[in-house]
Design a protein around this nucleic acid. Structure first.
Lengths: 130, 130
DNA sequence: CTAGTTGCAAAGCATTTGCCTGTGG
DNA sequence: CCACAGGCAAATGCTTTGCAACTAG
């Protein structure tokens, strides 16, 4: 069913090699290196089908558009980091718990999202010349 | 500079009485009880000016549009809960920490968002007739 | 009186869909 | 060959903005 076209290959490769969750635009830009004529619609359509196939998961973040990463990366439960300088998202390994009991009575907790904000290593380096 | 119009009063009142963070549409619907002709644009504009005045804060949530709540409500640091059934957002009192050390070396953490998902008390009751 | 405020409608953005051409298998 | 995939452009949904009429102070 999936026809393994050049564009699909480029999109998969971008996500695989990024090592962090990518936004649709980031995927587009990376994949366009392989397939210059690639359009946004194709990126969105391919991402959606990859999610349906179970290869990719969507990472919703507060205040910014969804990122996407390989299911494998999400298997070991982790949280995310957003750089206030460059806006990139990163994975943070490790699972924190103890939230389930925080909810008021009558509320049933079934999941959680933890997002840290700050400055990433790359942006930290760049601004160190104080 | 703020002219204390009927619509502004209605919007402030909705947010004050809700007791939880409201989306723009929720504000609109509540405020329209007082001012039937109220338009969305006014809600967004008023919310923005209330934020600039420091009365309101925006609450960005993963995967859904921003909610807004009184600054006072946000003063005692807290997290948020989103009901998977009705989509409403709630405040959860209490501050969890110990995240700052989780970031990889080179990453500086300056803030965090914790969002819990599940079923709220209202929706829990409704579905209890099993 | 008159600058800030409002409602409406149009403009922006990011994402989605329709449609017709292109192509992998 | 031909159904799926892709590119373009139009359509969406949410938020913002332009503008002329309106009103609080």
């Amino acid at each position: 069913m999936s026809r393994n076209t050049a564009q699909r290959k480029a999109i998969r490769r971008s996500l695989r090699e990024a090592g962090r969750p990518l936004s649709a635009v980031e995927v587009l830009e990376l994949a366009q290196r392989d397939v210059p004529g690639l359009g946004v619609a194709t990126v969105y359509r391919t991402i959606k089908s990859l999610i349906e196939e179970g290869d990719l998961i969507a990472v919703p973040l507060p205040g910014s558009s969804d990122r996407y990463e390989h299911r494998d990366a999400a298997l070991n439960h982790h949280h995310h980091f957003i750089c206030n300088a460059c806006g990139r998202a990163y994975d943070i390994p490790g699972c924190t718990m103890g939230f389930e009991g925080m909810a008021p009575p009558g509320f049933v907790v079934s999941g959680r999202d933890v997002v840290l904000y700050g400055v990433c290593d790359r942006c930290g380096e760049a601004g160190e010349d104080s």
